[in-house]
Design a protein around this nucleic acid. Sequence first.
DNA 1: TTGATACTTAATAAATCACTTAAGTATGAG
DNA 2: CTCATACTTAAGTGATTTATTAAGTATCAA
Lengths: 113, 113
Amino acid sequence: MAATASQLDLTFHALADPARRAMVERLSLGPASVSELAKPLAMSLPAVVQHLAVLQASGLVASEKIGRTRTCRMEPTAMSLAEHWINQRRSDWERRLDRLGEHLKQFPDGEPQ
Amino acid sequence: MAATASQLDLTFHALADPARRAMVERLSLGPASVSELAKPLAMSLPAVVQHLAVLQASGLVASEKIGRTRTCRMEPTAMSLAEHWINQRRSDWERRLDRLGEHLKQFPDGEPQ
DNA sequence: TTGATACTTAATAAATCACTTAAGTATGAG
DNA sequence: CTCATACTTAAGTGATTTATTAAGTATCAA
């Protein structure tokens, strides 16, 4: 439906799959080849490559091929964007609770009206 | 494929859609009815209800029906879980950069070997 | 040159997703 | 009782996703 999915769409979608999260967890510890990423996963190599494509499309991961080995690494900016969106929601949520608390302090015997 | 999707699967999947994020943004400011959530969205009410079901399945949102109105509210725990997962990745990432920095300080004229 | 390694591409197939329309039910107001 | 409101349920459709197998290419090692 969407002509172009937003960065947040792509990032949250990428993180919604356990295999892709496992890949991100591994890459957060340092770069790895495609086969290294594939080894702990119970799926074919082409499936892993497709997951990698999703991660790269989201900007979470970048890769570079040297010789016959493709080395993948985290690209932390995309994750920061998702983190920031969540933080904003938490900020809204907490600001509301603060206002609610202030309001209730004015009426210690229950809600007015 | 998965018999049961994990909490993180459900949460990140829920956040991967712009309509659902819009609903979460609205609910982070305070509770709202289904129609209030639907009003800014360019889709039918049943579509909104389906999105709401995804949000509830993930635990991000809860709702309660009083009279003919269903009131929805944020349930911040699920989002904290996602936030925590991201923070752990960032922590791994930064720990690795620190180690890398310490290592390089020992060899100011470039990588050994 | 021969063979193994490390991907890469393509062509499916099954399942899920994000909608839709066309109904329905329950509640509240007059 | 009647009507509008506020959902709710069901059924169906087209697009996307996630996997598969069967091929291919490029590099490196001997």
